[in-house]
Design a protein around this nucleic acid. Structure first.
Lengths: 92, 92
DNA sequence: TTATTATTTAGTTAAATACTTAAATACTTT
DNA sequence: AAAGTATTTAAGTATTTAACTAAATAATAA
């Protein structure tokens, strides 16, 4: 869970996830949405990928990135354990 | 959401949340669970408090910390928007 | 009121992070 | 094969973070 939260702790990376939520995008298309160098975005994508939050597929000379939605279920499960709902379930 | 994820990105702080999930604790009791100075834990508690993840109440010379469970609902909502469930709901 | 206990604030340092530019790699087109 | 495009890797730097110790604040007990 540590790599996941580390990856999510940066606003640029969360904005990348927001973009990929709408549609799959190449590395270049993603970097087009930021006032930041392509290498910087590439680094962020690497961190997101290592955290399992995104996947990539090479399409010719492009690399297409997409969300890996399964990890978000893990985040939901983690957070649910801290809610009142969970406390109620414990008791009853 | 940025302060929240920043706060959650540290393993020590997530462990503090785990402890408070079981019961409310004073600052000193919390620091007793770590091989770390009390001031360091105090800083972590400050960050968790500023992020709205915990609350504190002064009881005499003690400060009792407890979870603020409402924020975790926000995390769940955020994560849910990245799941396949959400995509299905969009379509149908 | 002096000493003791609980906690936070202040100041410092080492390590981690997020950026940059330049160079390398991989693929495509001519 | 040479040139151009897409992307990543490498190397360097400024900022942020997380730890520490020492000092300050606040409450309690002697």
């Amino acid at each position: 869970m540590n790599e996941t939260f580390k990856a999510l702790s940066d606003p640029t990376r969360r904005k990348i996830l927001d973009l990929l939520k709408e549609s799959d995008l190449t590395a270049g298309e993603i970097s087009g949405h930021f006032n930041m160098s392509k290498p910087s975005i590439s680094q962020h994508l690497k961190i997101l990928k290592n955290a399992g939050l995104v996947q990539d597929v090479k399409k010719g000379q492009f690399v297409v990135y997409s969300l890996n939605t399964t990890i978000f279920q893990d985040i939901i499960s983690w957070a649910f354990n801290f809610t009142d709902d969970q406390k109620e379930n414990k008791r009853g």
